[in-house]
Design a protein around this nucleic acid. Sequence first.
DNA 1: TTGAAAGCGCTAACAT
DNA 2: ATGTTAGCGCTTTCAA
Lengths: 342, 342
Amino acid sequence: MTNRTKRPLTLRDVSEASGVSEMTVSRVLRNKGDVSEATRQRVQEAAKRLGYVPNKIAGALASQRVNLVAVIIPSLGNMVFPEVLSGISDVLANTSLQPVVGVTDYLPEKEEKVLFEMLSWRPSGVIIAGIEHTEASRAMLRQAGCPVVEIMDVDGEPVDSCVGISHRRAGRKMAEAIIDAGYRRIGFLGTKMPLDHRARKRFEGFTRTLAKAGIEIADQEFYSGGSALAKGREMTEAMLKRTPDLDFLYYSNDMIGAGGLLYLIEKGVDIPGKIGLAGFNGVELLDGLPRRLATMDACRREIGERAAQILVDRHQGAGATEGQTIELTPTLDYGDTLRRSS
Amino acid sequence: MTNRTKRPLTLRDVSEASGVSEMTVSRVLRNKGDVSEATRQRVQEAAKRLGYVPNKIAGALASQRVNLVAVIIPSLGNMVFPEVLSGISDVLANTSLQPVVGVTDYLPEKEEKVLFEMLSWRPSGVIIAGIEHTEASRAMLRQAGCPVVEIMDVDGEPVDSCVGISHRRAGRKMAEAIIDAGYRRIGFLGTKMPLDHRARKRFEGFTRTLAKAGIEIADQEFYSGGSALAKGREMTEAMLKRTPDLDFLYYSNDMIGAGGLLYLIEKGVDIPGKIGLAGFNGVELLDGLPRRLATMDACRREIGERAAQILVDRHQGAGATEGQTIELTPTLDYGDTLRRSS
DNA sequence: TTGAAAGCGCTAACAT
DNA sequence: ATGTTAGCGCTTTCAA
């Protein structure tokens, strides 16, 4: 009934057990080519009885085809990438393609390593977060011999296809909404991550737009490590102690924003009257908070879906989409913490 | 300088470019066997210049060795598995083994599919969440021909090795603490997930222990979908409206517990005096809440580390650990929402 | 509809 | 220290 030896079963074992040639067994197992119903039955019965699991390594080598899509992201821990992944999975679920995830921890050298490792499995496509890579990584992507989609960010020069939002524009949009609402003494709280280019670009777009309106960031603080919620609370307290006349706090992500929000609610501060708040990302978590934090949706799910769709299309020969860039538009959610206008 | 053809480069290309035999090129690229410094230089230069990326498919087939560890988990969305993964990654980072993640969405059929798919790549080891699997899955695991570690849960019959906690015991422990603290009118709020066996076991251990003390669950409610935080808030409100005399709420996870906590703080309810609360998991998120929810640490990180370590040991021939079960002990954190004793 | 032969790109094992 | 040979387990291609 079962395989007593430790040697994994091969096609040959199924062939012998069913009295059908290896080639025909292969055809049955892949549903390819014409096989008589009788033979098909016998083969399937034998394969099942033995508990045969095909060897994709051999199959891939022989067919020069690998149904894997390399997905390379910075982290699994912050909610944003799992959502992108789920968009990717959903689209690929209806195809023969399978996502394989690699994590870089926001480290360019690790990205290089992971990329090299994944490319050495000759995937059918690559989805990689961000548009900034080392020269070596870019070279690998160019020569991968398969479609490449850079995601999340469109501010830069993609190697091939690209799906994302403009984080500079997102920062700008938020700045405009804040100015329009009449806030003038603005503080910024973010992560101390020189390698998070998207957060950096939002910050740049934000400050630049304020500057054009003659406003300078009144105070700013960056953190690293620890629980984002707790950090948001602490940083907010510290900043308001230092600069009590602030009337708006812009957080680089929703989690620290939520921490700040909880703190201010506790203190009984009038939001958004005395002080306004906004984060970034539109994480579902926020739904349960006492008040809804203003935020901007980064289109994470859709980014995953569109990226996967590009790979699926190109996998099926539609080379038309080669090198295209899709820019999505994040929507601003005023929530309960950002006035509509002054 | 770069590969203009779309055909991926092979060892042979590097061999020709460097004037060294394929075999020696292979040795250089794998740091295996004796190669003179001079040859090594030439080969490495050529490989780098061409942008050669080795073909692991061919390598794996020839060597009958795959440096992949299949990691199969139900979900990426709820924080607990990313932490397990990071434990696994950290341990494997110092080895030649690489984790590859598959997600089952808590669906046994999908688990079967994912498992089959991953085993067809002939991984060097399998780490799979849970101890309940379909008969077909168990058969595959038995015959995988590589070490298998089932994680998270030890209440049952593992196929091979096992690392986790006893969720029944965890439920019992929480019940005991609650009883000791003098609470008597207890409500339970959880996920409507018949397939989340660990939540089910905690619930069983919990109710059974209460029953022994002559206490019955006074009210209970299960949800599915939506934001956990928001659901926790809504369910708490609904339950207290329905059964106002409850003096304790036990949540099947920290996120809904946090939702309930925020709601009750808002209402100005005396916690843990008038009503006590507890969740499960010890998620870092909780650190930023106004008060610390009582919870129980599920040893997620350590589970990942120990499981990976078992695979590493067995990969290096130490068959001694075969079939062992490691039961970790979750620690109870009283936080600010569970009295110490009556 | 089925089978036989020839690789896929690499590495183990054995020369030299 | 380097090269040669023979596969790994499949699939492609061509023949029957």
